[in-house]
């Protein structure tokens, strides 16, 4: 009972943090798994969303929603730029695209610090969710609790769109056979642009939603990119459910894991990632299983 009590907050926080990572990684996994673009500038779009949301926030609900809208639009525009940049490279494999987006991320980081400076930008969130609540005798931030709900809804909506709608079916088809989708009358560049735009919108939205937890600052892009890459690799690129499981697993590793064994905290994330990758390769089994296994052993 004592152990459960001690680890309750980290475990709950792992869910919130994991969902944040899921929202952050969703755009990356979509674009990489389906579009084949490993977007190194993904973290930069997340940071852009955060800065935009922070710049309009004044503590009112209307500014909070405006912030999310602006962040999403900003992310979409970034995605459009990405689409235009990567389209000419479409038949040259992964590496040139990764090279390009790496370059874009370096340029983007410089632009963001030039515009917003090197200090972290605080987001002023509405008073009613800025405080704390009591859960089973523990203090916990209200915003993170709300975030769990919002992110869960987003995850369900994403699964629905990808699994049950015509647009989703088209995207899944594009992942398997681009030429076939082309033959159906959808120009490949349109599918590509739609994917990049959607991925950018998701990244911007995630940045806006996540800003009160991972505030926009000069380190944000790198951190989000690194964690998102871990998530999509563990969850198998393109799989929404896989990314969900992996994100929760990584969230728990970063919270419950360090709470249980703080001596090994520095090694936990990448150690378990390496183990999961190798275990999966040896077993040749599904990614979700490996991701969940990594979480269970934490």
């Amino acid at each position: 009972m004592g152990a459960i009590n001690t680890h309750f907050v980290p475990a709950l926080d792992g869910v919130a943090y994991g969902l944040l990572l899921f929202v952050a990684a969703a755009g990356l996994t979509l674009l990489f798994g389906i579009g084949g673009v490993l977007n190194i500038a993904h973290g930069t779009l997340f940071a852009l969303g955060g800065y935009l949301a922070a710049s309009v926030s004044d503590g009112s609900w209307s500014s909070a929603f405006l912030g999310l809208a602006v962040a999403t639009v900003g992310g979409t525009l970034g995605g459009g730029l990405l689409a235009a940049g990567t389209l000419p490279l479409a038949d040259r494999g992964h590496l040139p695209q990764a090279l390009l987006t790496f370059g874009l991320s370096l340029v983007g980081a410089d632009v963001l610090t030039t515009v917003y400076g090197t200090d972290e930008h605080p987001v002023v969130i509405p008073k009613s969710v800025n405080g704390t609540v009591q859960i089973f005798g523990h203090v916990y931030p209200t915003y993170r609790l709300m975030f769990i709900v919002v992110a869960s809804v987003l995850a369900l909506a994403g699964t629905y769109v990808l699994g049950r709608t015509r647009a989703g079916a088209l995207l899944r088809a594009a992942a398997d056979d681009r030429e076939m989708v082309g033959a159906m009358g959808y120009a490949p560049w349109r599918v590509h642009a739609a994917l990049c735009g959607a991925a950018g919108a998701l990244a911007g939205l995630a940045g806006g939603l996540g800003a009160p937890i991972i505030g926009p600052g000069p380190d944000t892009a790198d951190k989000v990119l690194m964690l998102s890459m871990v998530v999509i690799v563990l969850g198998r690129p393109g799989s929404v459910l896989g990314a969900f499981g992996a994100a929760i697993a990584v969230g728990e590793i970063e919270t419950l894991g360090v709470s249980i064994s703080s001596n090994w905290a520095p090694y936990l994330l990448f150690g378990l990632m390496a183990v999961a990758l190798v275990v999966r390769t040896f077993r040749g089994s599904s990614a979700v299983g490996a991701g969940a296994a990594a979480g269970a052993h934490a």
Binding site: G85, L99, L100, F102, G103, L104, S105, V107, A109, D110
Partner: peptide
């Protein structure tokens, strides 16, 4: 601005 120059170099190189 070293990273900026590297970034531009990569974009041009691609």
């Amino acid at each position: 601005h070293g990273p900026l120059l590297l970034g531009l170099m990569f974009i041009v190189a691609v």
